[in-house]
Each structure stands twice: as C-alpha cells, then as structure tokens.
Amino acid sequence: MQNLTLLDGQKFQITLQRLCRQLIENHNDFSESVLIGIQPRGIYLAKRIAEELRKILPEATILQGDLDITFYRDDFRRRDQLVPNQTKIDFIIENKKVIMMDDVLWTGRTIRAAMDALQAFGRPEKIELLALVDRRYSRHIPVEADYVGIEVDSIASQKVVVSWIETDGEDRITLLSDAK
C-alpha cells in the first residue's frame, strides 16, 4: 500500500472550521436543525463538528445523534455478514432540518440507505449532507453533498481513510493505493 496524506495538521482544522461557518450561514443558531452522524465513521465527524459549533456558539443548543444504516443497506445478503452498530437519536427530527454527516462520500449508496433509515424517525423539513471527503466522479446514484471538506479524484481500487485524534491519535485524511 502506498499512502498519500491529503490533509492533516492545521489545514485539517481550517477545513473543519470552514465547514462550521458554512453551516452557521444556513442554520443560524441551530434551534431548528440537528446533526446526524452516520455509523460507523461519520459519528466522529458529527461529534467534532458539534463540539466546534458549541465553541463558536456557546449560547446555542447543538443536537447531535448517531444513525446506523445496517438494516437499510442494499447489499445485505450480497456481501459478508453485516453487524449492526448503535443508533442513538434522543431528539425529535420531525419538521427539523437534518444535516447528515459522513467522513467519505463515494458511491452514494450509504447516503441512500441513511435517508431510508431516517424516515423511521419522522419527516424532517429538509435533509442536507455534509461530507469531509468527496470522491468525485464515482457515484452509483445521484447523490451530492451540500457541504464538502475536500474533493478527491480517485479510482475504485484506492481507499480514502479519515483518522481522528479521539480514536486514532491524529487528525488526517489518507489516500491508500495498491502498490502495483
């Protein structure tokens, strides 16, 4: 595997900060908006964004939840065993603006499943998507993100991995390639 760092250090922080400001532009004090991280890796992004937003807007109540999409995937029985993660949404999403977050947007299938999964919790007024990394030109279905950290051109055999201080010891986005 050949590893290429796409983003780390201060630039990583600046990107997160920019995403936060873009969110504030559209959602003001978040009284009508909620953040949902998609399991398993999007929850770290959502938690970090929520943390940053609370620093910027100390008065605001930022609601953040985790959504597991295992039961809604379209590749169940077509791949290895799927094992579910926890869903934790302790608030009402009916008539709220929901901002779904995932670390990497690739084929778009995860997001389709997430929109299905979200329906079980009510009818949001609007659903938006925030992706830290957008792997361009590789969508299998017509899904696009409203907020993008960085755009990456990659091929199917490559892999984009986002590491977080909380779990991996550092903030970093890495592109892994097959060493052929």
Partner: peptide, 8 residues
C-alpha cells in the same frame, strides 16, 4: 420507534 419496520 414510531416505524418499527426495517427493509433488511
């Protein structure tokens, strides 16, 4: 949940 059904 209000909707108790999943499509798995």
């Amino acid at each position: 949940r209000p909707i108790k059904k999943v499509p798995s």
